[in-house]
C-alpha cells in the first residue's frame, strides 16, 4: 500500500545526468604534477640559497653527482660503492631464499614441523634485523660477514612468515578436491598448495628484498668503508651536504629500480594474480 504513495513521476533535475565520479576532470589536473615539481624545486633552491638550513642547491647536487661519478669517493669509484651494496644484498637474499622459503612452506604444510620450529622462530621474529648489528659485529668483526648476516635476517623473516601463512591458508576446497581425485601427498604439495601459496610467498620475497635493502644501508652506516650507505655517512663526516643529498638520491634510485624489477618478476612468476589497483 505504502508503495503506491511513492511519486514515480519525479524526474532527474537535469537531462542527461552524469554521475559525479564520471564527470570530465578539469584539464588543469594534467599540468599539476609539473607545477608541483617546479614549485618544490623552487622552494628547495630558495631555502638553500637563503641558508635557512644547511642544504645544497639542486645545481650543487648535480655538480657533486658529476664529481662523484667521474672521480672517487674514499679511494673508490662510485660504481664500486653501488656494486658492493648490491652484492651484499644479493648474496644474503639468495641464502634467505634457499633457507626461508623451504622452512616457511614446510611449517605451513606440516603441523609437526610447525610445532618444532615456530616457537623458536617466534622468539627471533619480533627483533628488528638492525638490532642484530652489535652482536653480529661482536661475532664476525667488521668484514663482509656481519653485513651479509644482517641483510639475511632482514630478508629471511618476511619470507618465512609469508610462505607459512600462504601455505596454511591455501584454499581447503582445492586441497580436498585434489585428494578426491586421487592426488598423492607430494602431488598435493607441488601441484596444488605451492601454486596457491605462490602469490603470498612472492609478497614475502618482495618485502624481504626491500627490508634487506634497508638493512644493508644501516649495516654500512654503522661499520663499513664502502657501499651506498657509507657514501652518505662519509658525506656527514666530511661535512659535505651535497654529498649526503646525492647519496640519498642514488639510494632512492636504486630502491626504485629494485621495486620495478620485483614488479616485473611478479608478473612473470604469478601471471594469474589479479592486477592490483594501485
Amino acid at each position: 500500500m505504502a508503495l503506491n504513495k511513492v511519486d514515480i513521476n519525479v524526474q532527474p533535475k537535469e537531462e542527461g545526468y552524469v554521475p559525479k565520479s564520471k564527470k570530465k576532470t578539469f584539464s588543469y589536473i594534467q599540468v599539476l604534477p609539473v607545477v608541483s615539481f617546479a614549485l618544490a624545486l623552487g622552494i628547495w633552491w630558495v631555502i638553500a640559497e637563503l641558508e635557512l638550513i644547511r642544504l645544497p642547491t639542486p645545481a650543487e647536487v648535480i655538480m657533486q653527482l658529476y664529481v662523484m661519478a667521474t672521480g672517487t669517493v674514499a679511494g673508490q669509484p662510485l660504481h664500486f660503492h653501488v656494486y658492493m651494496s648490491l652484492q651484499r644484498v644479493l648474496i644474503a637474499f639468495v641464502i634467505a631464499l634457499a633457507v626461508g622459503i623451504p622452512l616457511g612452506t614446510m611449517m605451513g604444510w606440516n603441523r609437526r614441523i610447525e610445532k618444532i620450529f615456530n616457537p623458536i622462530f617466534e622468539i627471533f621474529r619480533p627483533i628488528p634485523p638492525i638490532a642484530w648489528v652489535p652482536l653480529a659485529i661482536l661475532w664476525m668483526g667488521i668484514g663482509e660477514a656481519p653485513k651479509i648476516f644482517i641483510v639475511w635476517v632482514g630478508c629471511f623473516v618476511p619470507m618465512v612468515v609469508n610462505s607459512f601463512t600462504g601455505m596454511r591458508y591455501a584454499d581447503k576446497l582445492l586441497m580436498d578436491a585434489s585428494r578426491t581425485l586421487g592426488a598423492t601427498r607430494s602431488q598435493q604439495f607441488f601441484n596444488v598448495a605451492l601454486p596457491a601459496a605462490l602469490p603470498s610467498i612472492f609478497a614475502g620475497v618482495q618485502n624481504g628484498l626491500s627490508l634487506g635493502w634497508m638493512c644493508v644501508l644501516a649495516a654500512e652506516m654503522i661499520a663499513a668503508r664502502e657501499g651506498a650507505g657509507f657514501l652518505i655517512l662519509q658525506g656527514m663526516y666530511v661535512r659535505n651536504e651535497a654529498m649526503i643529498v646525492s647519496g640519498m638520491l642514488i639510494i632512492g634510485l636504486l630502491g626504485f629500480l629494485i621495486a620495478i624489477f620485483l614488479r616485473y618478476m611478479e608478473k612473470v612468476i604469478t601471471p594469474w594474480r589479479k592486477e592490483e589497483l594501485v
Binding site: 644547511r54 644501508l217 650507505g229 656527514m236 640519498m248 638520491l249
Partner: peptide, 14 residues
Amino acid sequence: PIPPIAWIPISIFW
C-alpha cells in the same frame, strides 16, 4: 624509495 635510514645523516646534520 629513499629508506628512512638514509635520512639519518642529513637529519643529524640539520
